[in-house]
Structures are given as structure tokens and as C-alpha cells.
Design a protein around this nucleic acid. Structure first.
Length: 596
RNA sequence: GCCUCGGUAGCUCAGUUGGAUAGAGCAACUGCCUUCUAAGCAGUAGGUCAUGGGUUCGAAUCCCGUCCGGGGUACCA
């Protein structure tokens, strides 16, 4: 039982004893004591004044005296205005550290048979172009949320819905047919997604040219956009695809295969993975049936032109179309279909969609529709909505060539990590392979941490130059601290130092107390991150821990310590800190190097 | 217009269920490598928490109004 809970219980007792009134434990506020004030925990007594009918100081003193008497861990207390500051004895902290250090998986809750099953959908790429910076944010958030939920004792299925059909891929197909000259990833050496993406760009360039030519000939903008030969050809391909024309299907699956091979490389570099992949070409017809059933049950209604709608005015929303007048599906219908398949495949308790905030309205509607259709988790689905990634010179626009390509970005980060490490002479004793692996670890740590430390729901600014600065609140700074601790521990081992069981008599410093307190808070950081669906909570937690460790490290010699029990204690403290740093970073999908 | 999310130091961001004197990093300036890794540490400077009101012992945090910005808004995905 944590000391905070004990204190709460005892305070409730003390209030009853002193003032004769029962209070709920939730009404008791315990917080960390300000750094410049003596003490470990602070109880805010203002809420009790109404009961005690005494001054804040008097109330705090009365409670303090009783706590000191009844709780052995409370060694002393002080009162400032309405704040009761409690100091906790060294032995409590030392015992807590022993517990943390003995528990290999401190902070992690293991899933059981009865644990909630959470499905996390993320990534969801289109197959017509490579991944860019926006996808990186999505992938990192999705993966990390999955890991955090797992650490919090949920069963997690990570899933990806690949948008593999539609006009966008037909555009690339058309361009390849026309200008491809039989190019493949094999005979060009290009990554498949980049090759296909190049044809998409080619299509767009040509399409724009055709439009402006047509406008010059006197057509309206709208007519020109609809009549340009290349868009007509792409639409024709889409029709052939839907009619299952063998030649079109063959080209489609061939080009998609190239793209998947390319994506797999990018996913692997990013360190993300999936338990189950759905393809829209398999699910896009499913939603139709579901909607038609809903129509039968009068959940939806049909207009005269035979289009199908949902009336959401009772929910404060508008009318939403579900089937076009020609009977084909819209985006919403497809998502219903995908949900149906997933529900068949898994016993889902909770569904989390990691999708950008431009789709907030979409998911609000989806939630209501699934509920109306009888999906138990519909109402409770969670749209993990995240903000856009902006660049210093404005938004990312693929049309204007201001996108940051995911593969290029990662390669660039590795280059900078390598250059920096070489300048500092950090990895001199390493083989080339070991060194390269470490550069990659550091580069990816920098990128991932830079993105994950920001509150997901906010738009963020990605400054390429700043992101590769490894100073300050960055992944490499945390990795560096970890590597340094490992180095200390290696040296201890070389000297044959093995810490004994710690003695509770040891008196420890405030910095050391702080550090233990912070280390022991790891589980609550996980559960908070899980509740708020925010990896940033974990990122900020681990950054604080590292800052604190650095201060401790600066002030206290570890190996050069004459007193054996003090030295043992500090080695154990370092070991525990390293373990927690590694655990926390793993929740962000970031590896920590033994040496850097 | 309506819905929704934001606005904290020059810049990028933290800020627990409302708590004490609002915190980091970058950039600027000052120190510190013959002691376990200087990708570091210590320090200086930098704030009308967009703005006006309200709630109360107490507000960056909760409520209302205003201003600025992002996103969405019925047959695109």
C-alpha cells in the first residue's frame, strides 16, 4: 500500500476523531511538497475548515500531531498557512526502492482472461503514395497507445485498414500504363511505394495541364476538371475494377504489392506492427448490407431518389447520407462494414480509432450509427484524434511539394546522428555494424520522442532543423542518461561490487527521496496515459525522471563512496532508475542503447 | 452562420481532481572536462497565462461574453 493512501485513511480517521464528522477519501488532497519547502507530501487543509471551525494553521497542526502519532512513517511535519507538510522517514523510501528493484516488471499490469479487449486502428494508408510526416505522427501515436494499453492490463489488437481501392490508385495505374515503360521496383531499384507515388505525381501534373488547356479553350473550371482525358481514363479503370476486369485487377494487385513491400520497410524502420490487417477492397461492400438492414428496421430512411439517410437531428446533428442514389457506398458506409467484420472476428470491448482531427465529425456520427445498428461498443468507441503536423513555412501540401517524406526524414536523422557521434568520438571502439545500429537507435529516438512528447490533440510544429538537435528535452538526452547509468553499473560489476540488502537505518538525502518518489510513480503515469490516451504523459514523466537523475548524479559520487551501505544504495537507485527509463521508453517504442 | 479544438517566455512545449512564488528546452549571456560518458551540469536574464467579467479561502485550470487561429459542416475519402 502506498503511503499516500495510508495518509488519506489516517486523515479521515483523524478528522472524525477531532471534529466528529465523516469525510470521503476523495475530498482529501495530497500533493507533492514544493521543492523549496521541507517535506515530502502536503495535505491541503482548507476543505476541512468548515468542519473544524478553526483557523487553517490550528487545523493543520492538530491533524499533523495526530498523524505523527498514528503513522510511523511520518517523521515530522510543518505547517505553512493551510498547508500541512509531512516528512516521510528514510526507511519508507528505502523499502519502496527495494520493492521496485525486486520487481522485474514494476509498473506493468498483465492481462488476464477477463481483461478488456481493445482494438486500436492506426496508420490506415492510401496505396497511391509513400508515407509522410503526418503518417509518422499517426503511426507512432497508434503504436504507443497500443503499448500503453497493454501495460495497463488490456488485451490489445493493433489493426490497420488499408485503403487499397478507389480513384486514387487508378490514377497511379493509368499513369503507369501510359508512361511506365514497364518500370518495376526490381528493375529501377526504387522502393515500391515511391515508384507508385511518382506515377501519382505524374498523373496529377498531366491532369492539371489538361485542365488549364481546356479552360483556355473556353470550358468552365468544373467542366474542365470533369472532362480532362486522364481523369476520364482513371474513372474508366475504376469501373473496370469494379466489374472485375481481369487485366485491371492484375495491374491493381501488382502495383499494390509493390506498395506493400515499400510500406513494410517503412513500418519496420519505424518499429510499428499490426496484429491484423483489413483491406478496404474486402470490406467496402459489407457496409451496404448493414445499412439496408437498418433501413428495414426503420433506423434509417429512404428518399424518393432512393438514396438512404440517417436522421441525427435528435442527437443535435444533421442528416447523413449512407447510400448514394445509385446505391453505392460512401466513406461512412465502408466504416460500418469494416466495423461489422471486426466485430465478427473479435470480442471487442472497446474500439480506438487513431485518425486525424479533421475527422472528428465523422467519428461522432459513426459512433451514433453503430449504436443504432446494435453494436455494443458503438457508443463507447474512442476517436483518438490528433492534430496536424505543420512546417515552419506553413502546412504540408503534397500539391505544393511541401511534404516531408517519411523515408527521407528517417534517413536524414540517421545521417545527423552519425555525424554528431563521429564528431564527439563516441563510438570509437565499436564495429561498423554496432555503430550503425546505435546511430539508428539514436536517430529514431530523436524523431519519435520529438513527436510523442507533444499533446496529441494539439497541432504541432515540426521544424526539421530543430528536430535533429539532440540537446535539451529530446530522446537522445534520455537515451544518453540511460547509457551513462549502464556505464556506471558496468564499472561497478568490474570492480566486483554487488549491492547487499539495504538497511532501513540509512539516512538519505532529499534528492534521493525525490528520485525514489518519482520512480515509484511510474505505474500511475501509465494508467494516466492510458486514460487520457496520451503518450505525451509518459514522455514528460520520463523526462522529469531523467532530469532528476542527472541532478542526483551530479551531486553524489556513486562508486567513489567510502560508506558501503550508501554506495550500495546509490547503485541500486541507479539500477532502478535505468529500469524505469527503459520501461517508459519502450512504451513510446523507443530503444535505449547500452552505450553512446 | 453553426459545431468543434486551440491561444502559457522571442521560439518549441509542460503545467495532475482548482492550491503556495506559473515550469522545462532552444536561442542569448556566465562558469565547469587529470574524479564513474561535457549529446552533460550549475547559474543569469526573459511572463498582464489572448481579453473582459463571474464563481471562492484560492483560478493558467471551472462558467459566461469578446478577439485571434486550426479543423469540420448532408451523395469526396
Amino acid at each position: 500500500m502506498l503511503i499516500e493512501e495510508i495518509i488519506k485513511e489516517k486523515i479521515a480517521q483523524a478528522v472524525f476523531e477531532l471534529y466528529g464528522q465523516e469525510i470521503s477519501q476523495e475530498s482529501i488532497q495530497i500533493q507533492n511538497t514544493r521543492k523549496d519547502v521541507d517535506g515530502d507530501f502536503t495535505v491541503v487543509v482548507f476543505p476541512f475548515l468548515r468542519i473544524s471551525k478553526k483557523s487553517p494553521e490550528q487545523t493543520a497542526n492538530e491533524l499533523g500531531n495526530l498523524l505523527k502519532k498514528n503513522v510511523s512513517e511520518v517523521s515530522k511535519f510543518s505547517v505553512i498557512k493551510g498547508f500541512l507538510n509531512l516528512s516521510i522517514s528514510s526507511s519508507y523510501w528505502i523499502n519502496l526502492l527495494s520493492e521496485v528493484s525486486a520487481n522485474e516488471l514494476y509498473g506493468f499490469t498483465t492481462a488476464t482472461e477477463n481483461s478488456e479487449l481493445v482494438m486500436v486502428e492506426y496508420s490506415s494508408p492510401n496505396t497511391n503514395k509513400p508515407l509522410h510526416l503526418g503518417h509518422i505522427r499517426n503511426n507512432l501515436l497508434g503504436f504507443s497507445i497500443g503499448e500503453i494499453l497493454k501495460a495497463n492490463g488490456k488485451k490489445v489488437v493493433k489493426t490497420n485498414i488499408v485503403n487499397d481501392r478507389g480513384i486514387h490508385i487508378c490514377k497511379s495505374m493509368y499513369a503507369w500504363q501510359k508512361w511506365g515503360e514497364g518500370k518495376t521496383p526490381e528493375n529501377t531499384g526504387l522502393k515500391g511505394d515511391h515508384l507508385v507515388g511518382d506515377f501519382y505525381v505524374l498523373f496529377d501534373k498531366n491532369y492539371k495541364q489538361e485542365i488549364s488547356d481546356l479552360i483556355e479553350k473556353g470550358l468552365s473550371k468544373e467542366d474542365a476538371e470533369n472532362q480532362a482525358p486522364s481523369i476520364v481514363a482513371a474513372r474508366d479503370l475504376l469501373r473496370k475494377w469494379e466489374a472485375k476486369d481481369p487485366e485491371t485487377l492484375a495491374l491493381w494487385s501488382e502495383m499494390n504489392k509493390w506498395v506493400y513491400a515499400g510500406f513494410d520497410i517503412t513500418y519496420k524502420e519505424l518499429g510499428v506492427d499490426f496484429d491484423k490487417i483489413y483491406y478496404e477492397s474486402d470490406t467496402y461492400l459489407e457496409g451496404r448490407d448493414e445499412v439496408l438492414q437498418g433501413l428495414e428496421k426503420n433506423v434509417f430512411y429512404q428518399k424518393e431518389d432512393s438514396s438512404v439517410w440517417a436522421d441525427l437531428t435528435d442527437e443535435g446533428l444533421d442528416q447523413k447520407i449512407l447510400l448514394r442514389s445509385d446505391g453505392t457506398s460512401v466513406y461512412m458506409t465502408q466504416d460500418i462494414g469494416t466495423a461489422k467484420l471486426r466485430f465478427n472476428d473479435y470480442r471487442i470491448d472497446k474500439m480506438v480509432y487513431v485518425v486525424g482531427n479533421e475527422q472528428n465529425y465523422h467519428f461522432q456520427v459513426l459512433s451514433i450509427l453503430l449504436d443504432k445498428l446494435g453494436f455494443e461498443w458503438g457508443r463507447g468507441l474512442h476517436h483518438f484524434s490528433y492534430g496536424m503536423v505543420e512546417l515552419p513555412n506553413g502546412k504540408m501540401k503534397s500539391r505544393e511539394g511541401t511534404v516531408v517524406d517519411a523515408d527521407d526524414l528517417m534517413a536524414g536523422m540517421v545521417e545527423v546522428a552519425k555525424k554528431t557521434a563521429e564528431e564527439l568520438g563516441k563510438l570509437d571502439g565499436y564495429t561498423e555494424e554496432e555503430a550503425n545500429r546505435t546511430y539508428k537507435t539514436i536517430a529514431m529516438g530523436a524523431l519519435k520522442y520529438f513527436i510523442l512528447k507533444v499533446d496529441p490533440k494539439k497541432n504541432m510544429l515540426f521544424n526539421p532543423e530543430e528536430s535533429i538537435d539532440f540537446n535539451g528535452n529530446t530522446g537522445p538526452f534520455i537515451q544518453y542518461t540511460y547509457a551513462r547509468i549502464r556505464s556506471v553499473l558496468r564499472k561497478a560489476e568490474e570492480q566486483g561490487i554487488k549491492p547487499d540488502v539495504l538497511s532501513g537505518d540509512l539516512v538519505i538525502t532529499d534528492k534521493e527521496k525525490e528520485l525514489i518518489k518519482n520512480i515509484s510513480l511510474f505505474p500511475s503515469a501509465i494508467s494516466e496515459a492510458s486514460e487520457s490516451y496520451s503518450p505525451a504523459v509518459v514522455a514528460n514523466y520520463v523526462y522529469n525522471l531523467v532530469k532528476e537523475y542527472n541532478q542526483f548524479y551530479h551531486d553524489h559520487p556513486i562508486l567513489v563512496e567510502s560508506d558501503k551501505s550508501t554506495r550500495d544504495f546509490r547503485i541500486l537507485l541507479s539500477e532502478s532508475a535505468a529500469k524505469i527509463i527503459k520501461s517508459a521508453m519502450s512504451l513510446l517504442g523507443i530503444n535505449v542503447p547500452e552505450k553512446m
